[in-house]
Design a protein around this nucleic acid. Structure first.
Lengths: 242, 242
DNA sequence: GTGATTTGTCACAAAATTGTCATCTTATTT
DNA sequence: AAATAAGATGACAATTTTGTGACAAATCAC
C-alpha cells in the first residue's frame, strides 16, 4: 500500500521538484495547480496528506485548508503548508485553518521529507483490535482487557488492571515487541503530538506499568535499554544480568 | 584517497578563491565555469560533492542540479548551492532544487569548509536499522541487542551487554567492517563533531568493548592498526600474529 | 457536588556510564 | 640494547541516566 500526498502548488518548477523528492522517499505524489483541480482530485482519491502552497490563484491556500476541514471525509487529513519566509507572520491564521505543520521556502528536500514523515507518524496510531499474546500476557484491545497467565497452560490467569495510559503504553509496546523506542517516540505515538510533556513522564508511566505487572509475576517484560529507551520483550535482557 | 569537489562557478576570481581554500583543507577541487563543462567532467571523475553557483551562463544552477538528480550515477552526490543573499530572499529561490545545503555570498573560507565537511560527514552516518552479522556476532539496532554465537550453528548464543557508546562504536565498526578508522574519525562519527574529547578516550572505549567481547570468546574482532586506528574484522590481523 | 482515579511533574536516591590520568606493555627506531 | 613512540589497562571522580515515592491538578464516576 502506498502513501499518497496531494501536492497543491501552482509553480510547475516547484511542483516537479516536490514530486521528484516525494517519489524518492517512496511516497506517491498527486499534483494539482490550484484549488479547483485539487478539489476534483480529492473526490477521486483520498490522500494521506496534503502539501499546500500558501499562495494559490483564485483561492488562497488558507481557504482551501478551511474547505478541507469543513468536510467530514477530509477533516482528518493532515495538512502541511508551504509558505515563503516573509509570509511567516501569517502563521497564526494558518494554524486556525488547521494546518499541521509549516515549511518555509526555501526548504531542503531533506526537510521536506522529514516533516512529512513526522506528520504522518503522528497520525492516530494504528488502532488494531488484534489480540496480542506475548510473555504470558494477553492483551485484547476490543474488550480492553489484559490477562496474565499463571503458567504455560492457559487455564489459570489473573486479570490485570491498568489505567488508560498504561494500557495504551503496554499495547503499543506489545504490538512492537522486541523493538526499542525512545521516550520521545513513545510520546509521539502514544500521547500524540501535543508534546508539552516531559520525556521523563514516560519513565513514570513505565514504572506504573511495571508495578502492576509485578503483582502478577510478570517482571522484566518491560525492559530498560540504557541510553535509548524501553522495550517489551519476553526474552531476558542483557541489562538484567548481575 | 582524496576527496574531490566539483566547483561550478563562472566568475574566475571566486573560482580561484574557492580552489585555494579547498586545497588548504586537503580537498581536491575540480573546476568548471559552466554547466556544459561540468557535465563533461562529471563523466570523467565522479566528485564526492558539488559546489554549485546558482547563477550560471546558459543553464541555471538549478537546472544543472536537476540534471544531476535525474541521473542514477550522480543522484547521491551532495550538492551545495552558492547564492547571493538577494537571490535567497527571493521567493523563487531554488534551494529546493535538491541541494543539501547552501552558502550565501559573500562567505568566509571558514564557513565554506565547515559546510562542506558537515555535508560530507552527513553522507555516511545513515545508521540503518539493518541487522549486521560478522565474525559470529549479530547486532540488531532495532531491538538494540548484540548476540554472540557460541559455534557455527546459530543455535547457541549469549547476549552481550554494552553501554550506549560501546554499542554505537561496535555498530559503526561492524557496519564498515574491515575498514580502518582513525581515532579522530571515530570521534567525529560516533560522538558527533562538536565534541572536545581526547583522542585517547577512544582507546578506552575500544578497550571496554574488547573486554565485553572477550567474555563471550570473541577476541580479535576489534583490531588495532598501529599508527592509524582501529578496525572490525573477522579475518585475523597481521598484528596479532607472533 | 463528592470522592476516587488518573496524570504530569518534581525531588531525591540509586545505578550506570564516561572522560581522563597514571602506569604498564608492546612495538619501532636508532 | 637503550631510547622512543604508541597502545593497553585499571582506577576514579564527575556526570548522566534511570528508578521511585510523593503530591497537586485534572478528570471521571456517580
Amino acid at each position: 500500500m502506498s502513501i499518497t500526498v496531494l501536492v497543491v502548488e501552482d509553480e510547475p518548477a516547484i511542483q516537479d521538484l516536490i514530486s521528484y523528492n516525494l517519489k524518492k522517499s517512496g511516497l506517491t505524489p498527486i499534483c494539482a495547480s490550484n484549488a479547483e483541480q485539487a478539489t476534483v482530485m480529492i473526490n477521486n482519491v483520498l490522500p494521506d496528506l496534503v502539501l499546500l502552497d500558501w499562495m494559490l490563484p483564485n483561492m488562497s491556500g488558507l481557504e482551501f485548508a478551511r474547505q478541507l476541514r469543513r468536510n467530514t471525509r477530509t477533516q482528518v487529513i493532515p495538512i502541511i503548508m508551504l509558505t515563503a519566509r516573509i509570509e511567516l507572520e501569517d502563521k497564526i491564521s494558518g494554524l486556525e485553518a488547521g494546518a499541521d505543520d509549516y515549511i518555509t521556502k526555501p526548504f531542503s528536500p531533506r526537510e521536506l521529507t522529514a516533516r512529512i514523515k513526522a506528520v504522518l507518524r503522528r497520525r492516530i496510531p494504528e488502532i488494531s483490535d488484534e489480540i496480542i499474546e506475548a510473555g504470558g500476557l494477553r492483551i485484547d484491545p476490543a474488550t480492553h482487557r489484559v490477562l496474565a497467565y499463571c503458567d504455560d497452560s492457559c487455564s489459570k490467569y489473573n486479570e490485570v488492571k491498568l489505567g488508560p495510559t498504561e494500557f495504551r503504553l503496554l499495547h503499543f509496546l506489545m504490538a512492537h515487541k522486541e523493538r526499542v523506542y525512545t521516550r520521545t517516540q513513545l510520546l509521539d505515538r502514544i500521547w500524540g503530538d501535543h508534546v508539552f510533556i516531559e520525556d521523563r513522564t514516560v519513565d513514570v508511566h513505565i514504572r506504573r506499568l511495571r508495578k502492576v505487572l509485578e503483582k502478577v509475576n510478570k517482571d522484566n517484560l518491560v525492559q530498560t535499554v540504557r541510553g535509548t529507551g524501553y522495550r517489551f520483550s519476553s526474552e531476558k535482557s542483557a541489562y538484567d544480568e548481575e
